[in-house]
Design a protein around this nucleic acid. Structure first.
Lengths: 197, 197
DNA sequence: ATATTTTTATACCGCTCGTTAAGAAAACGA
DNA sequence: TCGTTTTCTTAACGAGCGGTATAAAAATAT
């Protein structure tokens, strides 16, 4: 298994988890290589050797973040009805952005605030657009099988949910408690269409 | 009116407007003094002479931004009914964050993404909390005069609106068109209580 | 005119940033 | 044991940052 050369003295998975935490808490630009490497428990050249430059490390961290902290998205998509899907997404998001012991908010929403010259904003925007597309497709299928009224617009429903979840991330970072976000999720569901008769 | 000394060769109001635009587009950290002073049409020492350091300039810019680009808040608060108030706020916000010729999004939401060591995040968070409080008080009065059902929670209603507007800012920066945001605003209004009988 | 005050323009400061060069250290294959 | 390969540590690089020292320029006051 091991080829020639000195073996790594650190666990790359644990180091990446540490990088996720720093990017989550500080954002892309706010996370310095010094803080990153320190949190990862390794020196800067080791970061470059194992993960590439800062932009590549960020993309790896985002991928890891999606796997570990956005599982509620796929959970929601698998719900039997569109309403349960929307409900699961909103409550799952509200819970994810207010996890005790983790940074408040959502890495995918807050790590890059404004469109920058580099490509990091585009990476996050694409990630968000992908999630929205998944829900739009889910609602399209729901309309096709009569689970949602035919006069509903699946893209508009998906955009409504993503807008709310983006707001949840901002509010969570502001210190809004989980219960408040869940109350907003509950209220928003009263604006979500019921199963077509 | 004019005392001794060489007079200013620039219009401080126009310079501050230019600074607002840069902070709006780039965020606080992303706006360098070089870009700021260049957009303001003056040299860096003139910025310090007229506006203080970067943090003070940012606070002045935020104040100007609220005056010039968040008038829809006070407009909404003056609406005769709570529903019209909420409606005016959501549509006014959706329009403000998608103004042609201006940066997409909201300076108060996006200029500082994550809680930083300096105080700029706190400045914006306080600004957002103030707006929320204004709406909570507005809805409290609405309940008192029977304009809203007595079993509604004014703070919960205000948080619902602020959450949506925060989401609008994020989505607008992502390129979501104004019509989509207005559609979400319309949908959200179907979750807002009607006047008590 | 001359002294005083304020703004102007240029150049520079110390610091932190992301990134890397250089060599010692630790594994392998022969 | 000896090269080879990879990772390790240390130290430094150039660039850009926020902020400022300096002195010329332009106004007023006497």
């Amino acid at each position: 298994m091991a080829g020639p050369g000195r073996p790594r003295a650190f666990d790359t998975d644990a180091a990446l988890d540490a990088a996720v935490e720093v990017f989550w808490r500080r954002g892309f630009a706010g996370a310095s290589l010094t803080e990153l490497s320190s949190a990862m428990g390794i020196n800067k050249p080791s970061v470059y050797g194992a993960f590439g430059d800062k932009a590549q490390l960020f993309q790896s961290a985002l991928h890891r973040y999606v796997e570990r902290n956005m599982g509620y998205v796929t959970d929601a998509l698998e719900q039997p009805t569109a309403r349960e899907c929307a409900q699961a997404f909103l409550t799952g998001n509200a819970r994810a952005v207010t996890m005790p012991g983790r940074p408040a908010g959502c890495l995918s929403v807050q790590a890059v605030a404004t469109p920058d010259d580099s490509g990091e904003y585009a990476v996050l925007a694409r990630n968000r657009a992908t999630v929205q597309q998944l829900f739009a497709d889910r609602f399209r299928r729901a309309i096709a099988v009569g689970d949602l009224p035919a006069d509903e617009d699946p893209d508009e429903l998906a955009t409504f949910l993503i807008t709310l979840s983006s707001g949840f991330a901002i509010r969570a970072a502001d210190g809004t408690p989980r219960e408040s976000l869940l109350a907003s999720a509950h209220r928003a569901m009263s604006a979500f269409p019921s199963t077509a008769t």
